[in-house]
Design a protein around this nucleic acid. Structure first.
Length: 426
RNA sequence: GGUGAGGUGGGUGAGUGGCUGAAACCAGCAGUUUGCUAAACUGCCGUACGGGUAACUGUACCGCGGGUUCGAAUCCCGCCCUCACCGCCA
């Protein structure tokens, strides 16, 4: 949620952001509505506070009189209470309604964008920030897509997964399962070597947590929900890991905070279809190693760059062809100020697969999390949050399988061999 | 799931209807003293939303939500959570 003060003091910047996101003037008008509502809210509060104050003072006087035994005088003062209460009730209601309406409107405003975010409508307008086009591997005359490789070498059983649960719940077995585990360990170890604190969080979260990181109300339909206990299955490790710092006031010396965690991710992916959902391209359950940073506002873009470097290094070590995109205004997530996507080329499918999304949320998430820090003057300010996948498993597995196939099997990337314990899937 | 106890400021913990936004202690910050260390002493030490150029000041918050009362941390109701024991169980 965008902080009201930011919206009020930097109105033009916010307006421009919404334009970049492709909002028309009619929609952008919420900004003015929010301004008006906020004025109203202050006005109600002023009236409410003064009425409450009057009541308190009256009560104090009544107390004194009672103590002195002047019961009649006290009763006289009491006579004024009903009218006061009546007006307090009305004001409270008006105040509450006003705040609710303001809150609802605020929830519809996406994050303000970083200056560098390009204009654009959708995925086709994303800027190629870094391309690596000459390095697609030679995988022979008749390369197989990963779902056929999976079958050929008996390492992923999509049918049985669908039988046990439903489509989109892949079952890894044998060397497939071990490859998956090897990747997880490789990613975690790389992050730990890089100074991250490893976290193993809960995989289900309550409503407050889902709201704080912005999954609610925005992406309600994307999450699996356990009705009986009011829990959501996490769609990403970002949710439980970032929520470690919900309602926290940090000292400046606590920065930087860097965490990494592997979690399964559960996504309903309602409305997806076609070749996008073939094999491992888009599944309902997958593992992901997520990095989360909490930063001082002055440092967050420097940090974003470091995160990009970290993710890029993983892909280089895995020897996968990748490119980096800077998302345009139309394709950027609701909560993000600037996002870079990493895509890996699945050579058999001839498809770019998104394997990481690295974002700076600035203070947007922190505002809902109530995650702040005290600066040297003692003032509390919102911190900045950032996160990124490092990396998302299922699609990386797909790319590893497709890009390393040869006549005799699938070669395991060198960096993974100490984790898998084998060099070939055959 | 059952029974019992409990949820107060960064921590420990007092507080059973008005003088309590909350004692005391610890931690933390600033200062005095001090050859250094230690100790002692003094002051400060919650958050949010408002008003005011400022000094300062209003309101709300003692797990959450309702209620009783002129007045609630304190009484009543519902919920949540924690702890202990029992049951069940990887």
């Amino acid at each position: 949620m965008i902080p009201v003060n930011k919206l009020r003091t930097q109105t033009e910047m916010v307006r421009k952001s919404l334009e970049k996101r492709g909002w028309n003037q009619d929609r952008i008008a919420v900004i003015d509505e929010i301004n008006a509502l906020d004025d109203q809210r202050k006005n109600f509060q002023l009236q409410l506070d003064s009425s409450l104050n009057e009541t308190r003072q009256l009560s104090a006087k009544i107390g004194e009189l009672m103590k002195k035994g002047s019961v009649e005088e006290a009763d006289q003062l009491k006579e004024r209470i009903p009218q006061l209460k009546e007006s307090i009730k009305e004001l409270e209601e008006a105040f509450r309604n006003c705040k609710t309406e303001l809150g609802d409107k605020l929830l519809t405003v996406p994050n303000a964008l970083h200056d560098s975010v390009p204009f654009g409508k959708g995925a086709e307008d994303n800027e190629v920030y870094k391309d690596w086009q000459n390095d697609f591997p030679d995988i022979g005359e008749k390369p197989l897509p990963h779902w056929e490789l999976a079958k050929k070498y008996n390492i992923i059983d999509f049918e049985r997964g669908a039988f046990i649960t439903g489509s989109g719940f892949p079952l890894f077995q044998g060397k497939g399962a071990r490859l998956n585990r090897a990747l997880i360990n490789f990613f975690l170890d790389e992050a730990i070597d890089n100074g991250y604190l490893e976290i193993r969080p809960p995989f289900l979260v309550n409503e407050d947590s889902a709201r704080a990181t912005g999954q609610l109300p925005d992406k309600e339909g994307q999450m699996y929900f356990i009705q009986e206990d009011n829990f959501y299955l996490i769609p990403t490790g970002e949710v439980p890991i970032t929520n470690i710092y919900r309602d926290v006031i940090l000292k400046e010396s606590d920065f930087p905070i860097r965490m990494v965690g592997m979690t399964p991710c559960f996504r309903r992916e309602a409305g997806s279809y076609g070749s996008d959902v073939k094999g491992l391209n888009r599944v309902h359950q997958f593992d992901k190693v997520e990095i989360v940073h909490i930063e001082h506002p002055d440092k967050s873009y420097e940090t974003l760059q470091k995160m990009l470097d970290h993710v890029e290094k993983l892909l280089i070590k895995l020897e996968l062809p990748y490119r980096i995109l800077r998302l345009c205004g139309g394709d950027l997530g609701f909560t993000s100020a600037l996002t870079f996507d990493f895509e890996v080329y699945a050579t058999a499918q001839k498809k770019w697969l998104e394997v990481s999304s690295v974002s700076n949320f600035e203070d947007f998430q922190a505002n809902r999390l109530m995650l702040r820090y005290k600066d040297e003057t003692g003032k509390t300010n919102l911190a900045h949050t950032l996160n990124g996948s490092a990396l998302a498993l299922a699609r990386i597995v797909a790319a590893v399988l497709e890009n390393n196939q040869c006549e005799s099997g699938i070669k395991v990337p060198k960096v993974l061999r100490k984790y898998t314990g084998f060099d070939m899937i055959d």
